[in-house]
């Protein structure tokens, strides 16, 4: 069963481990844990910021994003969000946890 189907939540690394830099519609984030720097678009950056605040299921994440200005609803596709979280997980930026 995949994380998206099991109702598990996604938790980002500690905010202290990330350093952000917004440059127009591109965002750079430095992860002190890996020493890597990642280039994100604004949607990906919003997602990462949200899951670094607290663990979120994909459903809850989608709802929170929908409330945010500047994020078109057609970009909030569940399967794309799930794929994004898996990419973040491979990069060591998020992990799967049981929802609170």
């Amino acid at each position: 069963m995949s994380e998206s189907e099991s109702g598990l939540a996604w938790q980002g690394v500690s905010s202290d481990a990330l350093c952000w830099l917004e440059l127009g519609d591109e965002v750079l984030v430095y992860h002190s844990g890996s020493g890597d720097t990642h280039l994100l678009d604004t949607l990906s950056a919003s997602v990462l910021r949200l899951v670094c605040d607290r663990p979120l299921t994909l459903a809850r994440l989608t709802a929170l994003l929908a409330d945010r200005p500047g994020i078109p609803r057609d970009e909030l596709d569940g399967s794309e969000l799930a794929a994004l979280m898996k990419r973040f997980r491979r990069l060591g930026l998020v992990d799967v946890v049981k929802p609170c």
Binding site: L21, L23, G24, E26, V27, L28, T37, L39
Partner: peptide, 11 residues
């Protein structure tokens, strides 16, 4: 080149 991509290349 955008500033973000410039920075990634500098890294």
């Amino acid at each position: 080149v955008t500033p973000a991509r410039t920075m990634l290349e500098l890294i």
